[in-house]
């Protein structure tokens, strides 16, 4: 109870809401770092996933690489990157990009592969080129799976971006790392609450986006995860409890 009261006091202290160690600034840092990591991961994983899914080549390698990427802890990568890239976000960003790539890559490949052959053949029969088939048939059908991967990535990145504070980076992890060093439990818990809310908010926002793609008029629902007979997504989007 004392701890909860301490957290409430922490949040009501105006000193914790202003300046470069204030909540708004730290949230801003956290969001910028996370958004940048996810955006760059999309820039890498989406084209790669589309190419692999469309051609069917390198699927096993992609799955293996993605599995390996998920198995290496972000914390280890972060410490390895400090000698290469230096303190702060310059090391945290590449570690988070590598964390964000696997779900997007695997879901993109699986989403494209799950598009029913009938649709693809109909497209070809209408005289579409390979790129047109990818853009007009496969991509729209795979969109819900791709967004589901994006959502998994984004939630993981928001939760993991706290590690940046271990290497002198900013973000909400600052409260957790500093609170631990100073033995201030209220600060640790306040930081954890903020990260949890940010992760839940990210999840909700991307769930809404995912639904919009699933219901979009004119989109081709064949093979969409959740549709009857469609293979389930390898990355089931986590609920808030996964944070």
């Amino acid at each position: 109870m004392d701890l909860l009261r301490g957290v409430a006091t922490w949040f009501s202290d105006p000193g914790n809401w202003s300046g470069s160690n204030g909540v708004p600034w730290r949230i801003g840092e956290h969001v910028v770092l996370s958004a940048l990591a996810v955006a760059l991961a999309v820039a890498i994983a989406l084209p790669a996933g589309l190419a692999i899914g469309h051609t069917g080549r390198g699927e096993r390698i992609a799955t293996a690489v993605a599995g390996l990427g998920r198995a290496v802890p972000s914390y280890a990568l972060l410490i390895l990157f400090v000698p290469l890239f230096g303190l702060g976000f310059s090391s945290a960003l590449p570690a988070l990009i590598l964390l964000a790539i696997p779900p997007i890559l695997v879901n993109t490949v699986a989403g494209i592969r799950a598009v029913e052959a009938d649709g693809v053949e109909a497209g070809r029969g209408m005289g579409m080129t390979g790129v047109q088939v990818l853009a007009r048939v496969e991509l729209p059908a795979a969109m819900p799976a791709i967004v589901a991967g994006l959502r998994t990535s984004a939630v993981q990145v928001v939760a993991t971006a706290t590690l940046a504070a271990l290497v002198a980076g900013g973000g909400l992890g600052r409260y957790i790392v500093d609170g631990f060093a100073l033995q201030q439990d209220d600060r640790i818990l306040a930081g954890a609450v903020l990260v949890a809310f940010l992760a839940i908010g990210t999840d909700r926002a991307l769930t809404a986006a995912q639904r919009r793609f699933e219901r979009r008029p004119g989109s081709i629902p064949i093979g969409a995860p959740g549709a009857p007979g469609a293979p389930s997504s390898p990355f089931a989007p986590p609920g808030p409890s996964a944070v």
Partner: peptide
């Protein structure tokens, strides 16, 4: 001031890299 670690590898790397 850059918060790193108590006499550990991150502080040493920060010095070597010139971040501190």
């Amino acid at each position: 001031f850059k918060p790193t670690d108590p006499g550990g590898p991150i502080t040493i790397e920060a010095l070597k890299k010139g971040d501190a």
